[in-house]
């Protein structure tokens, strides 16, 4: 028994140490296509962080400026607000989707065309330490429903 315990403890410690870094899983990242003169669009994805973390900012060559937004319906009224950061509770999947949270891209440098992929850098803060996560988001057409 004792023989196995030490490696196990070491492995657990290593795992814990790596989990302290941003162990973030990004699923299904996508960007909504734009028309030629359109200067804004939204980015959506599912983010799961192993440790308590927060998404602080997003960088991409496609946009001059990015913001993290929250959309809410108040009765029949749609409201959109900027949030300073997006909390990512440990183990929980935070979904950025139409009708809710999204990353807003402003001052687009090019048109987002269906079939393109947009490289994004997510800046994630875990315990006061910032790390970056590279994501490649697919451009989805305006025409089709965003899901299913």
């Amino acid at each position: 028994m004792m023989k196995f315990r030490l490696p196990m403890i070491l492995a657990t410690m290593l795992f814990a140490a790596s989990a302290a870094h941003a162990q973030v899983d990004i699923a299904n990242p996508w960007v909504r296509a734009t028309v030629s003169e359109q200067k804004t669009t939204g980015v959506f994805m599912k983010i799961t962080s192993k440790a308590d973390a927060k998404l602080v900012s997003v960088r991409t060559a496609l946009a001059g400026r990015t913001e993290i937004h929250e959309m809410a319906m108040e009765g029949d009224t749609m409201k959109m607000r900027q949030i300073p950061n997006l909390p990512l509770p440990a183990g929980a999947t935070v979904e950025l989707k139409p009708g809710g949270l999204h990353i807003m891209l402003f001052e687009l440098t090019a048109q987002a065309k269906e079939g393109d992929t947009v490289p994004l850098t997510l800046v994630i803060e875990t315990g006061g330490k910032q790390e970056t996560v590279e994501v490649s988001a697919a451009v989805r057409p305006l025409k089709k429903p965003a899901h299913h």
Partner: peptide, 17 residues
């Protein structure tokens, strides 16, 4: 409004559907 990333495209997609 077109800068709206959420409800407006969703409404347009629904109308097309």
């Amino acid at each position: 409004f077109i800068q709206c990333p959420d409800v407006c495209p969703t409404s347009l997609q629904r109308a097309a559907a």
